[in-house]
């Protein structure tokens, strides 16, 4: 099972890289979203996948799963949710101000 999730994470990274190399700003943002999905899947895989119940007070079972990777993922998801939302708002604002979402035209800075 770890192999499968690792491969899925790899595919996510690959797609993310492809999207982030494109010119359109919206694609880049989708790329960053996929990149963080890949990273989250990787944490889950790295924590070890196994069958077991949640380690909560009321439950009694033979085996439990490690709660830490899940806590880490939840935190990371919230953070990437915030960053992606901010990025989207920024992209929208800059589309209004600069009139383009093409990274080619957002090159360089104002100095000579």
């Amino acid at each position: 099972m770890e192999i499968v999730t690792s491969i899925v994470a790899g595919i996510l990274f690959m797609t993310a890289t492809y999207l982030m190399l494109s010119k359109s700003l919206l694609r880049i943002i989708i790329g960053t979203g996929l990149l963080s999905h890949g990273a989250h899947l990787l944490i889950l895989t790295m924590g070890g996948l196994k069958r077991g119940t949640v380690p909560l007070l009321d439950e009694h079972a033979a085996s439990y799963v490690d709660p830490l990777p899940q806590a880490l993922i939840l935190t990371a998801i919230v953070i990437s949710f915030g960053v992606t939302a901010f990025f989207l708002v920024l992209a929208y604002r800059s589309y209004q101000e600069l009139g383009t979402d093409d990274m080619d035209q957002l090159r360089g800075n104002d100095q000579k």
């Binding site: 915030g82 939302a85 901010f86 989207l88 708002v89 929208y92 209004q96």
Partner: peptide
């Protein structure tokens, strides 16, 4: 608060 702020910022304009 945060979710609605974001959605309003994009939606209102």
């Amino acid at each position: 608060g945060v979710t609605m702020t974001i959605i309003q910022t994009i939606g209102e304009t």
